[in-house]
């Protein structure tokens, strides 16, 4: 069943005090689709992603993952549904007091209740997928930023999420390390993962994204294929933004 929606953001609104940051956002992401989100600083990109797993509590609206509304249900249900939504942060946020392997097995053991054998095996698979299996016993502090980010991706993948959210996954990396992380993301896409990526890596978007979404001031201003958005943006605000970032 191709093209069924895997993630639906339905008239999502977020206010901080009297400040409305997200204004009735609607966005559908199909299974296996990679949606690339761009927009100026403060436009609400991070807030939108963080509302998708309720790290930020939406003021109103619905978030539907594979047909289930994560805004409904108890705290327990939320923990369970978060397993289906992987999140990768700009700052990696690996657990510094645990080895790489432990980082990847913790939630498998405690949230998914997998056995140690099963969790370890799954972790090694995922570490291999991101090219980090040789560092399973290392601690995060001993890794480069790019390596840490790949471990963080493995930590999310090990839980078999249905959607992966990336919030500027390469923005904290030295330029020479960016490629290794983008490659992992490209692999993921080719394996059919549904992904929403907030990033400034326009080259990656052109190559990999199915759709580019331009946000500004808490609304989706324009969306389309990479060719449409980068080649022939319709809205004035999109044009202004793109000429600023490319120029």
């Amino acid at each position: 069943m191709a093209n069924r929606p895997m993630l639906e953001i339905v008239s999502l609104e977020k206010r901080f005090g009297t400040n409305t940051i997200l204004k009735k956002i609607d966005l559908k992401v199909a299974e296996g689709e990679l949606v690339f989100v761009i927009g100026p600083s403060g436009s609400g990109k991070s807030t939108m992603l963080r509302c998708c797993n309720r790290l930020e509590e939406p003021t109103s609206g619905d978030i539907i993952v594979d047909g289930r509304n994560i805004m409904a249900g108890t705290r327990r249900d939320l923990d369970r549904m978060r397993l289906q939504i992987g999140m990768v942060f700009q700052g990696f946020h690996l657990y510094p007091h645990m080895s790489v392997l432990k980082n990847v097995t913790l939630a498998q053991r405690k949230a998914l209740k997998r056995s140690k054998v099963e969790a370890d095996a799954r972790a090694m698979d995922m570490l291999e997928q991101v090219g980090m299996e040789h560092k399973a016993d290392a601690y995060p502090g001993e890794l480069s930023g790019g390596q840490q980010q790949r471990v963080a991706i493995a930590r999310s993948l090990a839980l078999d999420p249905k959607v992966m959210l990336f919030d500027e996954p390469t923005s904290a990396l030295d330029p020479e390390l960016v490629g290794s992380v983008l490659k992992v993301m490209k692999d993921l896409k080719s394996k059919g993962m549904t992904m929403v990526v907030v990033s400034h890596e326009m080259g990656f978007a052109r190559e990999t994204a199915d759709r580019v979404v331009f946000m500004d001031g808490g609304v989706v201003v324009e969306q389309g294929t990479p060719d449409e958005i980068f080649g022939a943006p319709k809205a004035e605000r999109t044009r202004a933004f793109l000429s600023r970032v490319s120029g």
């Binding site: 705290r75 397993l83 999310s156």
Partner: peptide, 10 residues
């Protein structure tokens, strides 16, 4: 906190 909770830990 955010990383841990995003992986479904209570």
């Amino acid at each position: 906190w955010e990383a841990a909770q995003s992986t479904g830990l209570s």
